[in-house]
């Protein structure tokens, strides 16, 4: 232990040198961080400026130093740019996909915005009972009052006339066949509870176990574990709103029962 003592001195000097060599790139990274602004023009100029130098020196024969330097510099640039491009492409691929495309990619989804453009325009309010072509309905005229849709879980059927109004405000309406076993209902409720722009209720005589509605969209599945349920909610909740992301879900009808509550107001006769 004590004998190698003196030898440590030169070795530590070496370490100092290597770290010194390592520093410049790090310094470069820092300086770049300091000025994130006008980077593009400088890069283009630099890359072009250095390349022509390479062949000229190569003609001289042995003197490969400048070529190597230029090559290394170019590769560093390629590495930085490549990493940045790779990173941003990887990140934004999913996030930047428009919600309409995400919805369209869900197999089995029915897009009434395409097939029934008139139905899915923002609709006037209308009181009383309204007949809908789709079951459960996905859009169209509706009562002035919406069904409360801040993650509300209704254990009895609710009125279409209010639920459709909730869809217009960007809610996804999760419906299940009335009588579905409680453990399966609970799995659906976990996705809904306490989350704004969601509501859930049973529907009598539903053709499938689960049917999801957003304004102009519908997806029917048979299993509560179907991954498309989450995909549908992720793509269409809030996004499908006809009135933007801040349309209200509170202050709505919280009662159940399929008879609509708005019997006749000046706003919706």
């Amino acid at each position: 232990m004590s004998t190698p003592g003196p030898e440590r001195v030169p070795s530590s000097v070496k370490v100092g040198k290597t770290t010194g060599q390592g520093k410049p790139p790090a310094g470069g990274a820092k300086s770049s961080g300091a000025k994130p602004g006008g980077n593009r023009p400088a890069k283009a100029g630099g890359g072009k400026g250095r390349k022509p130098v390479t062949p000229v020196k190569a003609a001289g024969g042995r003197n490969l130093g400048p070529i190597a330097v230029a090559g290394v510099v170019v590769l560093i640039a390629v590495g930085i740019i490549g990493y940045a491009v790779f990173g941003s492409v990887k990140q934004s691929k999913d996030a930047a996909t428009p919600w309409e495309e995400k919805a369209a990619a869900i197999s089995g989804i029915v897009d009434y915005r395409k097939s029934e453009p008139d139905l899915v325009k923002g609709s006037q309010h209308k009181s009383g009972v309204i007949a809908y072509k789709q079951s459960p309905p996905v859009a169209g005229e509706h009562n002035p009052s919406w069904q409360n849709c801040n993650g509300d879980i209704y254990t009895q059927p609710i009125a279409n006339e209010h639920a459709v109004h909730s869809l217009e405000h960007g809610a996804v309406w999760v419906t299940y066949k009335q009588g579905l076993p409680a453990d399966q209902v609970a799995k659906l409720a976990d996705r809904v509870k306490g989350k704004e722009k969601l509501l859930m209720s049973p529907v009598a005589n539903l053709t499938n176990n689960v049917s999801l509605q957003a304004w102009g969209y519908q997806l029917k599945v048979d299993s509560v574990d179907d991954p498309r349920i989450d995909e549908f909610i992720r793509a269409l909740r809030i996004n499908a709103s006809v009135e933007g992301p801040t349309a209200a879900c509170d202050g709505g009808i919280t009662a159940t029962g399929t008879t609509p509550q708005d019997a006749g107001t000046p706003m919706g006769k």
Binding site: N39, A42, G65, V69
Partner: peptide, 26 residues
């Protein structure tokens, strides 16, 4: 980001690489 390589990284790399290059041109 690319500005970096031009001003910072380029000059940074010059020194360490150039030195061994001169020494071992063979």
């Amino acid at each position: 980001m690319t500005l970096t390589y031009d001003e910072g990284a380029a000059t940074a790399v010059d020194d360490p690489i150039a030195e061994p290059a001169a020494g071992r041109s063979g």
